[in-house]
Computed example of a mutant assay.
Amino acid sequence: MMDITLGSDEVISRIRQLQSSGGTVNKKQVKQQDPELMRSALHYFPSWEHALKSADLL
């Protein structure tokens, strides 16, 4: 099993930071640019879209 290094609240705040800094929250690109964030997000949420919804981005 992969180590999950971020808490669910950290996942949310990183997604929000990404969005507010003008970064992309596109699943494919986040997976390439920040695999740790994607892995952690999918640990806590059923999908990347769910994580975005939890961060109030959808």
Rank of each mutant, 00 (worst) to 15 (best):
H43W: 04
Q19V: 14
Q29W: 12
P46C: 07
V30I: 08
L37W: 01
Q33P: 09
V30K: 02
M38A: 11
G23S: 05
D34P: 05
R16H: 05
Y44G: 03
D3L: 15
S40K: 01
P46S: 05
I15W: 00
S54L: 09
Q33H: 11
I12Q: 01
L58E: 11
M2G: 15
Q32A: 15
I15F: 00
D34M: 06
R16I: 07
K28S: 14
Q33V: 12
M1T: 14
E10R: 01
A55K: 00
S8Y: 13
Q32P: 13
D9M: 12
A41F: 04
G22I: 06
D9L: 11
R16A: 07
V11N: 03
L37H: 00
M38I: 10
W48H: 04
V30T: 06
I15A: 03
Q32C: 15
I12D: 01
A51D: 01
N26G: 13
T5Y: 08
L18Y: 05
V30Q: 01
A51L: 00
G7M: 08
G22M: 05
H43I: 04
V11P: 00
V25T: 11
L58S: 12
L57K: 06
E49T: 11
K27G: 14
L42P: 02
D34K: 04
H50I: 06
Q19A: 13
E49S: 14
M2E: 15
H50R: 11
R16W: 05
Q17K: 15
E49Y: 12
Q32I: 14
G23H: 03
R14V: 08
H43D: 04
T5G: 09
S54E: 09
S40R: 03
K27I: 13
W48L: 03
K31S: 12
L37Y: 01
S20Q: 10
I12T: 05
S13H: 13
E36Y: 09
E10V: 00
S54R: 09
Q32D: 15
S20F: 11
L37D: 01
S47Q: 05
